[in-house]
Write a protein that binds this DNA or RNA. Structure first.
Lengths: 184, 184, 184, 184
DNA sequence: GATGAATGAGTGTTCATTCAT
DNA sequence: TATGAATGAACACTCATTCAT
């Protein structure tokens, strides 16, 4: 089993497994097996499970960050405030696919993995700042802009949770419409 | 080592440990030790770890449910719409103390514990319905009332996450003020 | 749960459970539960698991012993040599219902339970002697009578094994017929 | 602690321990200790206790199967029918060394281990068929040949039981002599 | 007589990690 | 680079037994 981007392969396989079963329920043996390599090889590329988790988290956080930035860019180019929310909703939907791993990373971050928590913290700050900067174009009161940045990030995380519980279908469109009408 | 409310003691000890270290990182040995009992005794009172987790989750979910209902009752008695948001924010703060365990339960629920997921699902539905009923007194458009119920629940979960990351202080008051201004 | 023959009840319940699941896989908790008594009460009547097993084994061994003696009595009263084999076969069938527990007791006896082994040993000796005495009426060569006594006991145990494996239906009638033709 | 045929070593050690103490009374910790390896290493080679038991049983069943086949081959080459019984008796004696484990495997098979029961079932069928084919050369009545195949297998198992009880010395020679005189 | 609470040693199993080759 | 063998601590869970009431 010789591959150029072995690390890439491992990363992808591990991400898939962890998305399905969670961090604690995915063993390095599982990952090695699914990657068609030995545990030894896995350790050659990643010096510990935390090391691997760290990479997975980085990639995930970057992916969501990109989604958030995409949002903002979309708004800028369209200059239609209502689009922001639409785009956010669209992104939430795309994030939902990543929802499970998002939750696992959050839990891991708040529990015991200080490095991971720091990464997540930084990203969340970055998201809020990016959103706030954009919001400030429309909403001139700084306090409100900040509050809204917190709220928007919250809503994303919160809707991810409700999406994952798979109770009722989350009415994304109605939610977006409501946000546009009342907030912007 | 004989105690009257041994089950209660175990429950409390376990809740504390799990709040600190998470479900997966808290072993039954840890719980037994911290409760000053043997593992055998623990198993006498709880027939499995899931059984114990289930009790902890039930208590937690009930506590938050009560908080949500308190909110709504508060609003009704005051008949001041602005109070709803204030109360929600107040409750979020009180929930924050339970934030860690809230996250752990959510992760457990979405990962592998079907029984738990069902419990959580039911509670979330109950919360949204309770909120929606109250919201409907002010907002007559049903679609909006429903969207808002999803949003409020999301905001609670989302702010819990941001609270737990302990990055910046979450500006609860500003957020509440913003919500009041724009919603009601 | 007040009962006159509590010990009897326990014994019966335990026998049923052990027949189904084996000695090692039947816990005293199981037995207590199925008897609708507490473990404490069980220990009031039986001072240990071995004590209980011992009683169960005694009853079982006596039951088979009676079957063997019935055989011999039947023969005596009928004075038809062919009947002996028929009766033995009939008894084997009746023993088959007890086959599982018979095997469990044998295993327990040869493994670790010296008292039990002694009981079983004594019974087997008794059976062979009883059979030999009867056989001697027909077969005058002592060596042959003894060999046949060993063989008959063996055949019972052996057919029990094959019955328990539930592969093909054991052709008891053909076997009996064959024995009659060739032995007596 | 590195060894070439570690799996072989484990198998041998486990077989010895189980022969002495029985399956249920032999723990994996015992086996690991006696093999001078860690429990982890044991699990590296055998993924479960059942897996190990399965290997032990397979080897045992094959050994007896070979003994049975040897019997038949011996007969064929000698063409002396009386030899068959002598050989069987000889084999029984050799099986006696394996008697304890034979009993344990039978008990395990009838209790709870479906895979094992299937293996045993297949072997017993194979033995009977092998015997019947050989018997058919002498005894032309099919029903009798079949009955005798059941009887011979039964006698082996039954004599194993009586051998294990170590009451009196089992008179193998007399038994063989009797069989030859009356059956063939 | 009867019980429920408590115990602690033991069970099979998992797993991140190490390391010689 | 890559691997398979080895490890040992930890895990959830079981169970015969004890004992105060």
């Amino acid at each position: 089993m010789k591959q150029k981007n072995m690390k890439e392969t491992i990363l992808q396989t591990a991400t898939n497994l962890i998305t399905k079963k969670g961090i604690k329920n995915t063993s390095l043996a599982d990952i090695a097996k699914a990657s068609n390599i030995s545990k030894g090889t896995l350790y050659y590329h990643y010096s510990s499970k935390n090391d691997l988790i760290s990479d997975i988290a980085d990639i995930h956080l970057q992916a969501i960050t990109n989604a958030v930035i995409d949002c903002v860019c979309g708004i800028e180019s369209n200059n239609a405030s209502s689009n922001m929310v639409n785009l956010i909703m669209e992104k939430i939907a795309s994030i939902e696919g990543r929802g499970r791993i998002h939750m696992y990373i959050l839990c891991e971050a708040i529990t015991e993995n200080d490095t991971l928590r720091e990464s997540v913290k930084v990203k969340y700050l970055e998201w809020r700042n990016t959103l706030k900067k954009e919001i400030s174009k429309t909403i001139k009161i700084d306090k409100d802009a900040e509050a809204l940045s917190f709220l928007l990030v919250s809503i994303v995380d919160g809707l991810v949770v409700q999406g994952l519980l798979k109770s009722e279908k989350v009415p994304y469109e109605n939610i977006a419409e409501f946000l546009v009408k009342n907030w912007l």
